[in-house]
Amino acid sequence: MNISVQTRNLTRRFGRFTAVDRVTLDVYEGEIFGFLGANGAGKTTLIRMLTGLLKPTEGEAQVAGFDVWGQSEAIKRRIGYMSQRFSLYEDLTAEENLTFYGGIYGLRRDQIEQRKAILFEHVGLQPFAGQMTRDLPLGFKQRLALACALLHDPPIVFLDEPTSGVDPKARRSFWNLIYQTAQLGKTLFVTTHFMDEAEYCHRVGIMHMGRMIAVGPPGQLKRQYDKSTMQEVFIALHQSSEEAA
């Protein structure tokens, strides 16, 4: 299998605080990689480094085969990003938001129209195309944000806590959407702090205090730690690393 995201001892420090501590990780093409950790564990910092928003302090990382140190331009064209904070223009319609993101990725007019049609279909937003974004229910805003991240057809998509703040039903249907997106052959890198969502991932990585303390398929991790849910695995791992510290 081809590797989509690869890091070697990737580290980021803010002054004396180490937010991400020597993380080494491989994410494969077409995978839904779940990225777990409590708030402040370093998930967002790691994603920000991989998307080129933040320079690493040291270590190496390749995204879509390009180096984060010198080839961030090439990386940016090949990734989609949906940030933790809902970040679409509330005073633009759903369609205008998509058109804008098409424009800043340098797509042609006809490409934008074509992709818009496909994505509205994909995320089920057709009836709301002309509505102001601020009037959409939160679940639909999130679908729109995903559509914006997918507009330029990137092979790798980073979703930073995409389901925070929505009800369980909307979360469930958003995960269906994530599955459908993976079936298009895309690599999805999803951070979450909902342990039930971890069960949906092909593989998960668990982060604690800036370090990656476990990586593997949910089933394997549950067997390894002799637990029945990811929730329990997470708590067990948390305690053991707390004791080690």
Partner: peptide, 11 residues
């Protein structure tokens, strides 16, 4: 609004 970040991950 956080939209600047969304723009900055683009080229």
């Amino acid at each position: 609004m956080g939209t600047m970040e969304q723009i900055l991950v683009s080229p």
